[in-house]
Amino acid sequence: MLEAKLDQASILKKVVDAIKDLVQDCNFDCNDSGIALQAMDNSHVALVSMALKAESFQPYRCDRNIALGLNLTSLTKVLRAAQNEDMLTLRAEDAPDSLNLVFESKADDRISEYDLKLMDIDQEHLGIPETEYAATITLPSSEFRRICTDLMALSESVTIDASKDGVKFSCTGDIGNGAVTLRSHTNVDKPELNVDIELSEPVSLTFSLKYLVNFCKASALSHQVKICLSNEVPLLVEYALENQSHLRFYLAPKIGD
């Protein structure tokens, strides 16, 4: 059976909130190392990869592999009943028909309990090759969201150029052009505002802004986001959580001309 308790319901609420517009039905794959999810969006342009490691739960118990087939809209309805600060426990039998969720308030003795029906989801897993990215950029997640939403007002696509001069996000639209350039920057007092650019070779890639703006819904999970690029391969956008848990998005580039 599975028993997994989060000290803060907000972690799962934020993760599900960040992916529910990209993915509707998906398996939460539970094993002794934690709970993982891998799913593509309907158009097969983006891939979501979540790992909530066993260490992120206290306690965590999962005797054998269990796939929890979840509709994320339904899960969202149940999670809305949890306060951010509540402790959240997930429970399931070995071959479950339903997922049991318990929300416990720390402030008072309120306990709420829900059973969510599960579904059989035949999901194909993709092998993601280990990649040494040519450019790895770490920046405030709020800054990345701002750049993506600002540029989406002008264009459907953004070109990301990483070079020794910095990283430039630029777009061309019917009403005109826009570009934002960031350089490495260290803020001693507020390291969450740091911008770090690691580059082994220059990169230039174009991506759909609609997807990037969607990924930015995960900004609530982490002050910083890491974006990794290599020419002609999907972009990796990673929001790191405690205990090496993470939420990753991969986005196929636009190629041509």
Partner: peptide, 14 residues
């Protein structure tokens, strides 16, 4: 213009 690629063109079915 540039064409949107599929993620399936990069990641293989495991």
């Amino acid at each position: 213009g540039k064409q949107q690629r599929s993620i399936l063109g990069f990641f293989s079915k495991a």
